[in-house]
Amino acid sequence: MTTRDTRQEFFPKDPKKTYGLMELMKGTAPLVGKGGPEDTFFSWPHLLILELLAMLGTTFVLILLSIYVRAPLREIADPDKVQLVEKAPWYFLNIQELLRHMNPALAGVIIPNIALGLVMAIPYIDRSNKDVGVWFAGTKGAKIALFGFLYASVMMVALVVFNEKFHWHGGTGVNALFMQAETVKGITTYVTRFPSAIAQDIVVGQAIPCALIFFLSLMLGVGTWKIAKANTREIIIALFSAFVAAYFVLMIIGIFFRGESFSFISPLNLPPGAISF
């Protein structure tokens, strides 16, 4: 056995073992600062009992629902039949609602994909690790969330109602803003200002919707940043809440306020079969 000066080495190697303690380092272990072992519970039974209850509860509610509420089955499909009400399933009615107001490629493909892309990008924009695990990142964030939600709800309702109910000089909605008088043989009529349908689509169907979405989002973002002195996380809370609000408000309009050929209608006058679950 070789003799070693154990005063030189902090952790002398035990010759009978193939491993040894090399060094102690300062640093954070996965558990440091996260509640420590005293806050841990065995998955069996603490987590599994919750999962069991969730399974039983979900199954119970689903069976009750399925006993009492019948899934719809309309008449047999006939691709040539003209249908009074043509609606997508409810979770796509927000997109169908957008289609009413703008260029179809913009409403049906471009905006949904940009929205999904932005949602996916959230973790890469909000890089701070502060406020993880805290609902709304605190009371200020909760207020900002509520504000963003209400802001978008009001804007969406206002825009839809304007585009459907504002009539002027024979035009409706945004198109009404582009009517001009034309006098032929002493008779004045109002016609659209646009030289062609393409020009009209570029302005009313594309430029105005894009500008509106951009500026409404920008105002919300800059507003929470400058006025509420929000940080990145809180600005994103405002914008995400606005997205959720737009998603649900447009969907609810699509479900309950759209009747024959998707016309704007009071929920009290919905034709039969307009609600498509």
């Binding site: 089955l73 047999i76 609606k87 079969g273 498509s276």
Partner: peptide
């Protein structure tokens, strides 16, 4: 394959 399906 009903009316609802075909509209969607």
């Amino acid at each position: 394959w009903d009316d609802l399906a075909i509209s969607a």
